[in-house]
Design a protein around this nucleic acid. Sequence first.
RNA 1: GGAGUGGUAGUUCAGUUGGUUAGAACGCUUCCCUGUCACGGAAGAGGUCGCGGGUUCGAGUCCCGUCCACUCCGCCA
Length: 594
Amino acid sequence: MLRSHTCGQLRKSEIGQTVELSGWVYRRRDHGGVIFIDLRDRYGVTQIKFDVNHGSSEEIMKNADQLRSEWVINVKGKVAARPEEMINAKLGTGEIEIEAAELKILNKSKALPFELEEEKESQANEQLRLKYRFLDLRREKLQTIMKKRDEVIVAIREYFHERNFIDIQTPILANSSPEGARDYLVPSRLYPGKFYALPQAPQQFKQLLMVGGFDRYFQVAPCFRDEDPRADRHPGDFYQIDFEMSFASQEDVWAVTEPLMIQLTEKFTDKKIVAKPFPRITFQDALAKYGSDKPDLRFEMPIKPITALIKSDCGFSVFASAVKDGGVVHALKVDGGNVFTRSIIDELTELAKTKDAKGLAYIQMRPEGPASPINKFLGDELMNKIINEVGAKTGDIIFFGADKFRTVCAALGAVRSKCGELLGLKDPKKISFAWIIDFPMYSMSEIEPGKVDFEHNPFSMPSGGLEALEKEQPLNIKANQYDMACNGYEILSGAIRNHDPKIMYKAFAIAGYTKEEVDRKFGAMISAFEFGAPPHGGAAIGFDRLLMILTDCDSIRDIYAFPKDGAGRDVMMDSPSEVSPRQLKELHIKMEEK
RNA sequence: GGAGUGGUAGUUCAGUUGGUUAGAACGCUUCCCUGUCACGGAAGAGGUCGCGGGUUCGAGUCCCGUCCACUCCGCCA
């Protein structure tokens, strides 16, 4: 070893010992006759002193004078106490320093394309940092995140192992699944024209593990989806904490999940959990009240239906016609929202429009009385009724959505989230978990009117089983399916699965699939279910998003060692890249001439 | 595929109604300095103002096009 200790290790107790350290030159303070080097590794920083009066030869002084940022050096010397008034309280090693007696330069470094010190400037452009990710990783922030990522994974593994779950790796080369996101395809060399697909999730494999008798499975599962990225969505590959349980009800899955989330929060953050046990909100209520199936519940700010008030008599044609066409009118009262300027209201209006709202009506609760551009249409009486209904007081603002139910929810949900942000209600010291339950099994197709589609996951067990499928209106059937929302992110999704071939065929039939189609697409799983599949269910935790919240990162790229950029490329390794004609030929791929 | 914001020194940014030689901080180079810790001091190097075109006596600044980045929408069973 080129070191006897790490750069974060030495304390007063080692004073007098001769030690050997290796690391990177972090900072250099050259005083002529004495040179200080802050030597850094991932454990910390130790001050090295080069001083002719304290063990450093003329030659070492000459070499120390050459040292530059990020050179890799090896130093031998004696641990010495710092004079009382020279102690650096900011460093764990701040009470000591090394009096260098030997110096070896292990490697030099070019001047860096950006600075590593956190407190200096705002950080460099992300594209540049990604190109030199190996340097960015030296920064304290990323060192801390990677360490925490490791600790969280260890804690999760321990948690599941303590409860009899076993970690099983499922294939990376798998089959294209006809539902869901775009697949990453891998051409087969031995079977011309055929392809593997990288799994979007280990869904079918974990269900087959249940059939295989592994009644409690979990995995830190790599998942692959070829979709455009977002700040909270890494392009290409990402990780889920995937788990599945046999003989389990929804309550059983929740009972495993909830303590895990609490433990991780308490162990890795100082955030306060808003509500324990976690609230359970139906999908319908979440949409109506918060305008989202992943509401940020660090603040309440509920949306209220006022359709009933509008029904009787309303002079505002936007509201009246929405109700007449079977839509709804909802109101969002924002406490203290009268501080919003015209330009902020314009911005919120644009936001609502991105969710297909046609506009964003509002009433400002000014000190001199309510003011609204739509007052002249509403009339004072109706306006006062609305103000009364939502409980608005001076200083508030009320926003309105009038349209189809889903449109109103989405628009006011986006406005609610933005208002929470603008008013500083998204407290980083708080964390809100909530179960979103009772997802509908089906919804009306948006492409083919009159046709029924799966709302979410076709493999979920419908509530009420076969009987419900046969007797209920499809749109009224709920699925045994649940998400967990956390601070506005969907952080977990799961279900009690449909393990009964009969119910499965029926469920697919309602969505317009013939038995032959189902057999062709999900044959392996369905035929396995004919051999004594146990009832089972589970969930998958979005590990990356969870880690973003635990580490207070806004960008999902910060929590990967080697992230893709916003266009799905690795700018450091330059992937994706071209391959040789020979490789293409082996894979039976002909490139079109450009 | 669409929208918004941005692109000026190695990095982060400023740059006025269009007007001399495009600035600052940090970094870098050389020198000075024996107690600093974001050390200090002196001097210096470093720019195709993303790219192309246009308007103008004159463009970093105005106009058109284009490329790139980030964020959002679509998309994500």
